[in-house]
Design a protein around this nucleic acid. Structure first.
Length: 585
RNA sequence: GCGCCCGUAGCUCAGUUGGAUAGAGCACUUGGCUUCGAACCAAGUGGUCGGGAGUUCGAAUCUCUCCGGGCGCGCCA
């Protein structure tokens, strides 16, 4: 409806241009917005004020002229000039009845659109290192990434969800060493655990499984090299200590056997992560392995392509990408002086690979602590010939956990952090996803466990679900009283829905499609949460103000049609959020 | 020091591609269940939109500056 009005205004303007404007007006100047309240009609436009200067007329006169130029239209009941020069439109009642029928007719498809024009979008999110369970920060990335994907899908994008597995590099070796040390302990060896190894309890069952699978086969003569810090590691140099242990392990076992432990550990961690995400209703089209990317030669090919682009140079024995050509603060190392490729090298290849797989738009969901990497990744893509705007990152600010007003402190390597699984078990998946999505992505999130857990009016997730359950309950009551709902009759008598409460509900309902569209466009899942809360509010208000089950059949059916439409929209909205819509609570 | 994010009611936050009287939840006060679920509703109290300057017919929104808080700034991943 909004776009229809904008088209009408644009037409009126076009016919007026020769008379009132010195130069053609920019169509973007035509803005139609929801009226702020019922007194201002249904929609308002500020077009006259925007163009007043160019037209050299005062806004109200210009508005008058524009209004006169609007062709007759069955949508508009009235238009009037108000305030400094707003044009306020009131729609015919019929316009809203049509919207209501649309909800009934389209069902789960209501609110979906095609504005994405089937553009191929890859959303990469979570991508938590497979070195341990996911924590509450990953939970936010999971909830936001999943909902963002749903929103893009609902607006007609061709969405591909991917999880990037960081299973190459040092950290995964540290995981393997950690598992191996625990394994050796099970074999009866005495070992020394490096301070930056993974000491948390979740390593133990993995080591145990390895021991069950392989017996003592990985216990090699000379295992005492896993005891004590290597001689070249000064006290306190934990990096050298753990690197020494990795080297010792490789020497003891051979590369192939060590790598088998790497994969064993990785797969165990990944199984846990995957199960966690499944339970959280977060799924992916692909789990993409960095290790496989390396082995395929894609990283070397990407680096070679970068060299050819002329944006690489050698300095201090290392090879650098000239990311300053693309707005970065400094250039970045791609190949270290010791010949090893950096993590950034994999990232370049990975994002290049995404493009080569045919994805036009790459959206990454990252923790805000990675914000410094955006520019260099985009720069590399540009150097490889991609447009800069094909890559965007939704940065999520920190999540802090509170319990009863007290902030919980967490550290990862020690394993005393609250896992996503703990959080879900404590507050439930619905409340969990809802809370994660309530805030704008650039707002730090204070997650209050007590509030999320509380089954009281303080908890906003139940407020929305309750509205849905309430309609279900009324439908049951309808049957209990011997009535049956006649959809056709309801649809025919929608003009009976003329109380202010009913008008408010219908108006709220009709905002759903534009809410979804804007939320997708702005990458703002939280907008859907706020919308649903408002919609639920109008329904609760209506429920308390009027009886729905009345003797008059026409009115009864019309009211139930309205209630069912709200129920449908709540269900559609909650589906996007990944929150259930219970029939009773 | 540099970069990014934030600062709006007592608390937690919407609103930020410039628009009319800045909104909601919680908390607090008062009222509403013999009739479809009170996990609900209604009414009320509560604001120098961090401070200042600028641009504009119009600024919470844009620009500059200052103050306060968070996160980054490795040939780690």
């Amino acid at each position: 409806m909004k776009s229809e009005l904008e088209r009408l205004l644009r037409e009126a303007l076009r016919s007026l241009v020769p008379h009132v404007l010195a130069e053609p007006a920019d169509p973007a100047q035509v803005v139609v917005e929801r009226a702020r309240d019922a007194q201002h009609g249904d929609f308002a436009s500020n077009i006259a004020m925007r163009l007043a200067k160019a037209a050299r007329k005062n806004p109200r006169d210009l508005a008058q002229a524009i209004m006169a130029g609007i062709p007759a239209n069955e949508l508009i009941a009235s238009a009037e000039i108000a305030g400094a020069g707003f044009i306020n439109f009131r729609l015919v009642k019929n316009a809203w009845a049509a919207e209501l029928r649309k909800v009934a007719a389209q069902g789960t498809a209501y609110g979906r659109s095609n504005v994405g024009a089937a553009r191929k979008v890859m959303v990469e999110f979570v991508s938590a290192n497979p070195t341990g369970p996911m924590h509450v920060g990953h939970g936010r990335q999971a909830a936001v990434g999943a909902t963002l994907s749903n929103l893009l899908e609902a607006t007609g994008h061709d969405v591909y969800r991917e999880y990037y597995i960081n299973d190459a590099g040092r950290q995964i070796d540290i995981l393997a060493v950690s598992v191996y040390l625990r394994y050796l302990e099970l074999c009866g060896e005495t070992v020394t655990f490096p301070s930056n190894g993974y000491k948390a309890p979740y390593i133990l069952p993995v080591a145990k499984a390895l021991h069950e699978k392989r017996g003592d086969a990985l216990r090699r003569p000379g295992a005492d090299v896993m005891r004590g810090a290597p001689p070249d590691a000064p006290a306190g140099d934990k990096d050298k200590h753990v690197d020494g242990l990795i080297a010792n392990s490789r020497r003891l076992l051979g590369d192939a056997e060590f790598d088998s432990i790497v994969l064993f550990g990785r797969d165990a961690m990944l199984a846990d992560i995957r199960n966690d995400l499944d339970e959280f209703r977060v799924t992916f089209d692909k789990w993409f392995s960095e290790r496989e990317l390396n082995q395929s030669g894609a990283v070397d090919r990407a680096i070679e392509a970068l060299r050819k682009s002329g944006h690489m140079y050698t300095k201090d024995g290392a090879e650098w990408f000239k990311s300053t050509d693309y707005g970065d603060d400094e250039d970045r190392v791609v190949i270290r002086a010791n010949g090893e490729k950096t993590y950034f090298a994999s990232d370049i290849a990975y994002h290049f690979d995404k493009r080569q797989r045919g994805h036009d738009l790459l959206i990454d969901v990252w923790g805000a602590d990675h914000h410094g990497y955006v520019t260099r990744v985009r720069g590399a893509l540009q150097a490889l010939g991609a447009p800069g705007n094909c890559f965007e990152v939704t940065l999520l600010q920190l999540v802090s956990l509170f319990r009863g007003g007290e902030k919980l402190q967490m550290g990862k390597r020690e394993g005393n952090f609250v896992t996503l699984r703990d959080l879900r078990n404590e507050v439930g998946n619905d409340a969990c996803r809802f809370f994660y999505l309530m805030r704008s992505h650039d707002q730090a999130l204070d997650f209050d466990l007590e509030l999320a857990k509380s089954r009281s009016n303080e908890n906003p997730v139940y407020y929305v679900q309750y509205a849905h359950a309430r309609v279900c309950s009324v439908m049951k009551e309808l049957g209990a009283r011997g009535f049956s709902y006649d959809a056709a009759a309801g649809s025919q008598h929608l003009e009976l829905l003329d109380t202010p409460h009913e008008q408010a509900v219908i108006t709220a309902l009709s905002k759903y499609p534009e809410t979804v569209e804007q939320a997708a466009l702005n990458r703002a899942p939280h907008a859907v949460v706020h919308y649903l809360r408002d919609l639920a509010n109008t329904l609760h208000t209506y429920y308390n103000a009027e009886k729905w089950i009345v003797d008059d059949a026409a009115l009864r059916n019309a009211r139930v049609t309205l209630a069912l439409a709200v129920q449908q929209v709540i269900r559609n909205g909650l589906e996007i959020l990944g929150v259930s819509a219970p029939e009773s609570m």
